[in-house]
Simulated scan of single mutants.
Amino acid sequence: MRINRNTIFIPGATSGIGLALALRLHEAGNTVIVGGRRTELLEQVAAQHPGIGTVRIDTTDAGSIAAARTEVIARHPELNVLIPMAGIMRLEDWTSPEGVLESAEATVTTNLLGPIRLISAFLPPLLAQPDATIMTVSSGLAFAPLRVTPTYNATKAAIHMLSETLRLQLADTSVQVIELVPPSVQSDIIPGHQDDPSAMPLDEYIDEVMTLLESQPDAAEIQVERVKFLRYGEVRGDQEQVIAALNGTDVLAAR
Rank of each mutant, 00 (worst) to 15 (best):
V177G: 04
L118S: 12
S163G: 12
H160F: 13
Q239H: 15
I88M: 01
T249V: 10
D61Y: 03
R255Q: 02
N80P: 15
D196P: 07
E179F: 00
T59Y: 03
I222F: 02
A245G: 05
L91S: 07
R38K: 13
R5D: 15
G233I: 10
T165H: 09
D58C: 15
S139T: 11
L79F: 13
T107I: 15
L118I: 05
A144S: 15
L123R: 06
Q176T: 13
R37T: 02
S120K: 11
A142E: 07
M89R: 10
S198W: 07
H49M: 09
G99D: 02
T54Y: 00
V148P: 01
P182M: 03
P183N: 07
G16W: 04
L113C: 01
L166R: 09
I73K: 03
A74Q: 08
P115S: 00
A121T: 14
E240Y: 13
D203C: 11
T31H: 12
E105G: 01
R24P: 14
A171W: 12
I178A: 08
T70M: 07
I52C: 06
A74H: 12
S138T: 14
K156S: 03
D203P: 06
R255Y: 01
N80Y: 09
L112F: 03
L170E: 10
G18H: 07
A158M: 06
E92R: 03
E98I: 13
V175F: 04
L112R: 00
G12I: 08
I57D: 02
R37L: 02
Q44W: 05
T165D: 09
P197D: 05
T59N: 06
Q186V: 07
V181P: 03
N111K: 08
D58M: 12
G99L: 01
E43I: 06
G192S: 07
A121W: 04
D203Y: 03
A171T: 13
L19R: 15
I243T: 14
L180I: 00
N4A: 12
A104W: 02
P145Y: 07
R226I: 08
L91G: 10
H49P: 10
E27S: 11
S215A: 10
A121R: 05
L127G: 11
L19A: 13
R56C: 13
S64P: 05
G114K: 01
A66C: 12
N247A: 04
G53C: 14
E214P: 05
I33N: 01
A219G: 10
V32T: 07
V175E: 05
E78W: 00
A22S: 13
H160A: 08
V55Y: 12
V181N: 04
E40I: 08
N247D: 00
